[in-house]
Design a protein around this nucleic acid. Sequence first.
DNA 1: TTAGAGCCTG
DNA 2: CAGGCTCTAA
Length: 676
Amino acid sequence: MNLSLPDQNMHGSSEGCLEDDKPELMLPCFRRNMYEEPLASYSNGSIISQLLRKTIHNKRPLDENHFYLSGSVAAADSGQEDQSSVSSKDSTVEAVSPSDRVSTGASPEGEHPLADHLQAKRARVENIIRVMAGSPNSRQYCDGERSDADARETREARESYRENKRKQRLPQHQEHGTAGWQMNKKPGGSSSSGGDNCSTKEEECNKLKEQLHSMQRLLRQLQEKFLQVYSQEDPEYEAGDAAGLDSEHDVLGESTDACYISPDEHFETSSSAVTANCKDRINPADYLVHQRESQNLQATLKQELSKAVNDCIDRVFRRVSPTDMDMSPQQRVCSSPEMQIGLGADTESTPADHPQAEDMPAKSGPSEYCESSKAQTSQDQTEALSLVVRKPPVTQVGSVTPAVKRPYPVHQAPFQFSYNPPLHESHILEHLLKYGPHSNFGALPCMPPSMDRTSPDSVDLSWDAMAMRSKVTSSHFGHHHHRPSSMGAVAVDGLCLPHVKMEGGELQSLAERNPYMSLNIQEGLTPSHLKKAKLMFFYTRYPSSNVLKTFFPDVKFNRCITSQLIKWFSNFREFYYIQMEKFARQAIAEGVRDVKDITVSRDSELFRALNMHYNKANDFHVPDRFLEVAEITLHEFYNAISSAKDSDSSWKKAIYKVICKLDSEIPEEFKTSSYL
DNA sequence: TTAGAGCCTG
DNA sequence: CAGGCTCTAA
């Protein structure tokens, strides 16, 4: 039988491993603070610090109101964040975080040395940057699912984390505070303010450029993303989001036309807001000079940044091209995050929407995999598109492709992941940037560029499968490279990941604990869920709600969803029993004398009718047991009707009672959400 | 009271 | 397939 489990090792040992692996399953890259790491490292690298110091020295507060505006916005919104515009709001909230208030507000008259203010400002900008990095995540909460308590908790955790980091850095900053903008020198490093060590300085500059350029990239992507997100919002969200966006624009001084704010601009506008309180400390006579210097810096930075971006793009292409020489230009372009952003919403939506290639040769070794995926173009899209319900969205580029029937079920093994480096936080971030919070992680950049968008696996995997894969990524996994072509998707997952098997409930709770994971928990039932339910009907006519929860781990169950699923099965039964009655009466009409003459085989019309209903694509091998049950049911109906029991209004109840005991176990494969 | 089955209808 | 309805068991 097709669905027999080839992965016995899935059970037993897998259960045992589960506990051990749990911490790891909670992928490090999904932890919130992991998102902050890269940026924290930026701040350690202190490109921001340097910018701040330089800018703060040069720049005069232009508009004190700006600060108050930010502050008041923060105060007003701090209790009701979790809108799509969290980034801006959070930014301002952070800007007036308690610790900052202490340093800036407690003694505004200058008791504190300038360094204190600089630190405060620096910290704020760092916060802004960090928040921006984390905010794509927060967008998902605009659905209102998340409780205020959760929001507070997350925010507090984030703040305390940041404060800790900030505290750790403070002494360092103070030590070097007066040295100007080279505050991030390593302890043993020479002071570069004099510029006497050219090579060291050059190196440092390069490093800084590198960091700046990375940040720039991230910022640009984030901004791009935000703009897209806002523009795609549902009308009902639009008002609120627009407000948030506006406020963001106010705070950041960013223009809507310019989808990209250069970091220095961004930085300067931000710092202009946060440095307003320093205003009276700066000599007005120097203002113009400082402003000129500031502009010079700005121009220099812009120049440097564009150079760096160019270099980066070159590097990306250089890195991509050796392995993807055969890629189509479009594919190649898509492999570069920068280019994806540049290509706009269309391409941006592509990866998430790109279907699973279902007609691929089922058997493909690691080396074949890339090749196969290269062969996958958007034209290979199949009905799998519907597997993930996406929110309103983005232009669906890939949805035009013809459906391709495939032998059921065929999936690609995720073994490729074993060759990839572990997920890095920035990868996650980039993924979010590229594909949005509602995309799944099947196309994480940990994949080879060529697979990024074209992998048949990249679309359809719900998060649990993704978690498994990611688990594989970081674990020992060098075998299981082959699988029989007829093996089902779940079997594949199980074969490849024998030690990461989770029950639906665990998946759900895990996903609920982790906002990023829950991205792939479906809010509603999709056509593929329906299809799966129909196939499950071949095994169970009366599934309990627990069974349903177990076998739909990627569905976020609530009362409504549960009833809907139950209703589905009720409808299935209805059709089933109607067919049974119909064919039983037909048999009687045809003069069948003996119930034993009535059989149900795969050639039977009855079976065809049922198969057509529950397995329309005919890509599922119906279990023999179902034929037996169907036959029994038919016999029951035949007997009841032939003995005139159907005159009783509730004559079917007796039959139902019999049939409900004939449920068989649903294969484990169905437990995997990526089954279809 | 609630969940779920079953029936009917659109 | 979903919604509305009744009925029943827990």
